[in-house]
Nucleic acid binder design. Sequence first.
DNA 1: TGCGACACATAGCC
DNA 2: CGGCTATGTGTCGC
Length: 651
Amino acid sequence: MSHIQELPREVAGETRHPLQIEDPLADQQIIQTHLNDDGSTSNYFDKRKLKIAPRSTLQFKVGPPFELVGSYNTVLEADTLETVLFQINPRIDRGFDFIDDGWVGYKRNYFTLVSSFETPGLDLDTFLNSSFKVQMHDRHNSPLLLVKYFAVKIRARSDDDRTEISLVQHTAKRDKGPQFTPATCPLIPSALPQHQIIREASNVRNSVKMRKYDSTFFFHRDEDREKYNVHGIVYSYPDECIQKVARYERVQFASSINVKKPSQQNKHFRLHVVLGAVTNPPSGSSPYCNYDDALNVCDEMTAADGSREYFIPLQEMKTPPLIIRGRSPSNYTSSQKVAVRTSSSVALSDKNSTSSISPVIISPRSSIPPSLSPPEQKTNRSSKRRSKVSENPPSLSSLVNAGVGQNEYRTSKRVETIEHIERLYKEKTSLSLRTSEESNRCRNEDKASDMKRPKISRQDSIDPKEIELKPPTCGSDENIYVVGSLALTATFQSDQNDLKLKRRRVNKVEARTIADAEILKKEPKKCLLSPKLPAQSSTAPPSPRSPIEDSQGEESFGDSLNHDLHSISLSILDETSSNYRHDPNYIHSNHENIARSFPRVIGETSFTNLYVYKHDKFRMKDRLPSREILSLPSQVVEGDEFYQEISFYRH
DNA sequence: TGCGACACATAGCC
DNA sequence: CGGCTATGTGTCGC
């Protein structure tokens, strides 16, 4: 089903909010939410400005779309000699945020890249029972080589000087476990599991859950031995358990990379996914020795049994340029940094507390005067550092929370989570939110600021319906307080019942991004043509339901999806115009109590791999001109000419 | 200055 | 619910 068809008319149709869409303040939204194909969301935020807990589901997000680099050598079905078509199906599921029109990752953090491949027009059983030969395009006399198996591998390279960049992978044990280079992954054709499935399956240890996901990720050829031809390719794969999806999790760029050019400009990197056919070397002299180094046509590998194998590339895709932020402290903090002081855990655990007050104060790190900071403790490596939370000086607590009472102080290093904030609402606790400047002002001019904002008091309960998604205004409006993408507008309106109502509506809403609206506006015809391949449409589940067959007994996809949506429901908006812009004069109506915003311009195709299937050739089409900066085309079709960027593999 | 190593914090998993 | 696990990132010291 096409996203486009689900578009509410108000958004798809016309230029309903042209001014709002252009609002430069939209760029300052702290969290940009994008609806993924499967109904889950990707929440993009700048880690300089917002710290989210390492295990938060908000750390999962769909990364940049891949574009075709090229298709290379040809594979023929051995009996019919028909050409086999291939389609790599990659996606990034963790580690890259869309910030300021660019895709940004962190050198220290993991990313996840998953990929499957498909053979359009060739069903799986036929594939498994068939034999395949690969023909080298650049050698007239090249023999047809029998394909042992198909495999994908990933590579990274600098976009500026074209050098290859090492990738490293960790196990879940990280420092305590081994490091290794992402392996070439033998694969059989399969659809790519949806983003939500990758999330759910990311750290599964429970055997029931492992079984639940087994058929999604693995094919066991020996479980149905009679069904498959022992001469089919399925029996030349190296293992009984064959992966259907390559999951490269916990991947990082080599720690030695320089993320900036000598000029201090950001370097750009790209991640590549290469599908290849793996063969044995032909008997006698290897015809590849010439190719390997000079033309980089194929790579020699060593099989598990020690024999030589060759990886013959068939197709390659790559991301748009990626910015990698290094370890510089500036990449972890800024004057705009949003941190949170919350006693949520206290409020949540201290059921006996008579206080309903749970302040959440946003302030920059710099808002804590050094004199108020806990005294520095010089520690040796041998002694554990003390907990920053448990040893907060009470004097600071009383200062920061003056007039609030028994709330525990949290340092600005504390992680903010949307879940935290939402939980506070759910528990009907109060909260007050501040921008950094506001926080400072509050401490320094407490009474004065209270007078400036007579409607808001830290003792008052703030109704969730007063929450709006707004850009951080940093004091431009005294009645707006910002937390993440949330802004509280000072008002006395309060109606707890509305919350449940809104939540329900939020879960039903078919959210669209303004991005989609804008792209539709600019390129209505191109966008209405589905960018998806027929194969993608036919292999993808028709609805956001789990494709996993035996899922009883486990939390359903829908349930977990609801959790996920629930946790970010405050970011999910309808098409009301007031949700698209910062409007300090906005007056709440009963109709629209929870503001919702999708200000970032990200088109649907930003998250769809950029290729089209056409005349037995894959071509990168010059689509999405308004956002072409995201993915400079590696291939351009102009008239009958076909221009292609030089790739890892030259032909 | 940047990196390896260790440490802390915190949500998810079981 | 409590303990364990995984992972973003703070920090030390070279």
